[in-house]
């Protein structure tokens, strides 16, 4: 079996991703990148954090290596490991090491999901040392100026068992994301799903109504991503009410009362 290191070129973003700036986030991120400061993106699910990173990578013309964190993620998974190849051993860089070597962007998505002992590995990278020690190889990588570390998390109702340690969070420039206002969200939905702006506006209104239930038992309302998803289904010929039910409502909750209310909202909006 052949082990193949993924080419870093696979991580380069060739065409401009659609991103509608909502504030000063782009200029701040560019300034942070120029000053070699790491970024912390926080915001509810599906509000455009990952899309923002793709856009930033395109603006900076740097490869973007994304790692979705989970509680089984080990340090080796990030840094790299030796593998046996025939009679020989091969060192395989992990995603973090790869991004450091080539001066790319490493984006750790949902960082709070990773175990705390794993997250400490980024500490020396995220301060002015900008170093990544690879113990197994006895190597100390110093990140080039182009390397940018970014992490994200969703500060909504978080489990108290999964919180970002102050020692971790106090290394970052933090950008707060939220859902855009009605007009701009409609623009995004319309553009991304390729649907008419009037339909996009209706979807956005439905989304806003579902977010109004946040204090009534719904942990989080419909994200922009869900609205786009429903729009795409409509674009493929699915009836709009069905698309909203399967694309938004059922994905939000299992609670019978909330389901009934959301279904009524769909029926009322369309």
């Amino acid at each position: 079996m052949a082990y193949q290191q993924q080419s870093i070129e696979d991580h380069r973003i060739s065409s401009e991703p659609f991103y509608l700036p909502l504030g000063e986030e782009v200029s701040i991120a560019l300034a942070a990148a120029a000053r070699r400061l790491p970024l912390l993106l926080k915001g509810p699910t599906g509000c455009g954090k990952t899309r923002f990173m793709r856009y930033l990578a395109w603006r900076l013309q740097r490869p973007l290596v994304t790692v979705s964190c989970h509680d089984d993620l080990s340090t080796s998974d990030l840094v790299g490991r030796y593998l046996i190849k025939g009679d020989d051993t091969v060192w395989l860089d992990g995603p973090l090491t790869r991004a450091v070597r080539v001066g790319g962007i490493c984006y750790l998505d949902e960082i709070v999901e990773a175990r705390k002992d794993t997250t400490v590995v980024i500490h020396p990278l995220a301060d002015d040392r900008r170093e990544l020690p690879i113990e197994k190889r006895g190597e100390l990588l110093t990140a080039p100026d182009e390397f940018l570390l970014a992490v994200s998390y969703n500060p909504g109702y978080q489990s108290v068992l999964k919180d970002l340690k102050p020692s971790t969070r106090q290394r970052f420039v933090s950008l707060s994301f939220d859902y855009p206002d009605e007009r701009r969200e409609a623009l995004i939905v319309s553009k991304e799903a390729g649907i008419e702006s009037s339909l996009a506006l209706q979807l956005v209104r439905l989304g806003a109504m579902s977010r109004g239930l946040k204090d009534s038992g719904l942990p989080e309302g419909a994200s922009t991503r869900l609205l786009i998803q429903a729009g795409l289904l409509v674009q493929s010929g699915i009836d709009v009410q069905t698309a909203c039910l399967v694309g938004i409502v059922e994905s939000l909750t299992d609670d019978p009362d909330l389901l009934a209310a959301l279904k009524e909202m769909v029926a009322a909006v369309f």
Partner: peptide, 15 residues
């Protein structure tokens, strides 16, 4: 009422 109150919350933007 169980769903109507939520429906109204959605319309009004707050409970």
């Amino acid at each position: 009422a169980p769903w109507l109150s939520l429906f109204v919350a959605g319309l009004a933007g707050e409970a």
